[in-house]
């Protein structure tokens, strides 16, 4: 497998192990007869980049949608920044979500709006008192953060996949989130663009001092961005630790996953 060194060295000292920002306890979720999550426990600490690895269809997207309150678990507790999600009313949930940045698997840019309007959307929806100048400044700032200042007047259909991902990330940064959730940030991107996105994730983490959950099946991404890695399989976490710790495991399911991906990357 190709080794790509990230520009941004991880600063593990910043992780505060006494301060979990996301806590999941015994999360169960089924769709009809399909049991997707079967008792998931998870803590994400302040300043940490946690990577969730897993095969397609194992419920990774379901997991972070539960964290963001987009899906309700059938059983179990979710608390984010010290608040239990299912005890919040609409107002409180909105206030909490303003502190959570969600980068969607499909970027989820609004097709009908320009890049500028996409970026303004969360801002004007959450802070209705802002003036024109403040909005323009905030838009310019996040575009600069993701290195796409020139795209401001384009429409999403004119952007490449990697650019869409960046704008999607910029759109979440505009509210200066404390937590970032990335759903497959590098899926469908070429290796070089993937490395750029990995760097962006680390850069965001340092500039905005966020804690992140990064969902992926891309080992390069996992290695480059993750302080800790958990492996999701058949509705439960198989193993967690640093990248090397996880893949030293003898568990056939982990070995299988690792070898298959190695094989694909070599082809």
């Amino acid at each position: 497998m190709t080794q790509v060194e990230s520009k941004y060295k991880k600063l593990h000292a910043q992780i505060d192990r006494n301060n979990p920002v996301i806590t999941l306890r015994d999360i169960h979720k089924a769709f009809g007869a399909l049991q997707v999550l079967k008792g998931v426990d998870l803590d994400v600490y302040k300043g940490e980049n946690l990577v969730v690895l897993g095969r397609s269809g194992t419920g990774k997207s379901v997991l972070i949608k539960i964290i963001a309150g987009l899906l309700k678990p059938d059983r179990g507790q979710v608390s984010v920044l010290g608040q239990e999600i299912d005890k919040l009313d609409t107002r409180e949930l909105q206030a909490l979500r303003a502190k959570i940045g969600f980068s969607f698997q499909s970027s989820a840019l609004y097709d009908g709006m320009s890049v500028r309007a996409n970026l303004e959307f969360p801002l004007v929806r959450n802070k209705r008192h802002l003036g024109r100048k403040e909005i323009d400044d905030a838009v310019a700032q996040v575009l600069d953060d993701v290195g796409l200042s020139q795209a401001i007047d384009q429409t999403p259909s004119q952007l490449s996949g990697g650019q869409k991902k960046r704008i999607g990330i910029a759109r979440t940064l505009i509210l200066q989130p404390e937590i970032m959730l990335y759903d497959e940030p590098t899926a469908g991107l070429d290796p070089l663009t993937s490395v750029e996105i990995n760097d962006l994730i680390n850069e965001v983490q340092q500039r905005y001092n966020t804690s992140s959950v990064i969902i992926t099946h891309d080992l390069t991404c996992a290695r480059a961005t993750g302080d800790r890695i958990v492996m999701l399989s058949e509705g439960c976490f198989l193993r967690q630790g640093t990248f090397d710790e996880v893949f030293e495991s003898d568990d056939p399911r982990i070995r299988n996953f690792y070898n298959t991906i190695l094989l694909i990357n070599h082809e």
């Binding site: 949608k65 987009l70 969600f102 499909s106 989820a108 097709d111 969360p122 929806r125 759109r171």
Partner: peptide, 20 residues
């Protein structure tokens, strides 16, 4: 078609996390 494509590309969920 419009709402359908917003649904399958997660734009509807993106709205929901943007206090809308």
């Amino acid at each position: 078609a419009e709402i359908g494509s917003m649904k399958v590309t997660e734009q509807i969920e993106a709205m929901e996390v943007s206090s809308t």
